[in-house]
Computed example of a mutant assay.
Amino acid sequence: METGELAASLDSHDPAVGLRAVGALHRLAEQVEAVSVARARQLGWSWEQIGDALGVSRQSVHSKHGHSKQGPTK
């Protein structure tokens, strides 16, 4: 879903259209999070720092993204 289409979908009165837009937003947020976590790890950020920035525990973010071999492990 493109940005313009997504914005229009969020304003739709059809719940199916709105819910598809929500799903697209969730997928986009997951992709942005994965890229950002990988970048932070490459720059030497600890899991605790990343968790703090995301508002979650270090255990939570490590469990979700720790499989990546990018960056140092701490």
Rank of each mutant, 00 (worst) to 15 (best):
E2Q: 11
T3A: 13
G4K: 02
E5Y: 00
L6K: 05
A7M: 13
A8G: 01
A8S: 15
S9Q: 10
S9G: 14
L10Q: 13
D11T: 11
H13V: 13
H13G: 12
D14Q: 06
P15F: 15
V17G: 06
R20Q: 10
A21Q: 00
A21K: 08
V22W: 02
V22K: 09
A24S: 15
L25F: 06
L25E: 11
H26K: 11
R27A: 14
E33G: 01
A34T: 13
S36Y: 00
S36G: 00
S36D: 04
S36M: 00
V37H: 01
A38D: 11
A38M: 01
A38T: 12
A40Y: 01
A40F: 00
Q42R: 15
Q42D: 15
L43D: 13
G44R: 01
W45I: 06
W45H: 14
W45T: 09
W47I: 04
W47S: 05
E48D: 12
E48G: 11
Q49C: 10
Q49W: 02
Q49H: 08
Q49K: 09
Q49M: 12
D52K: 13
A53I: 06
V56G: 05
Q59F: 06
S60F: 03
H62C: 12
S63K: 08
K64N: 03
H65F: 04
H65A: 08
G66M: 10
S68K: 03
K69A: 07
Q70G: 00
G71F: 05
G71V: 07
P72I: 05
T73V: 14
T73A: 12
K74M: 07
K74V: 07
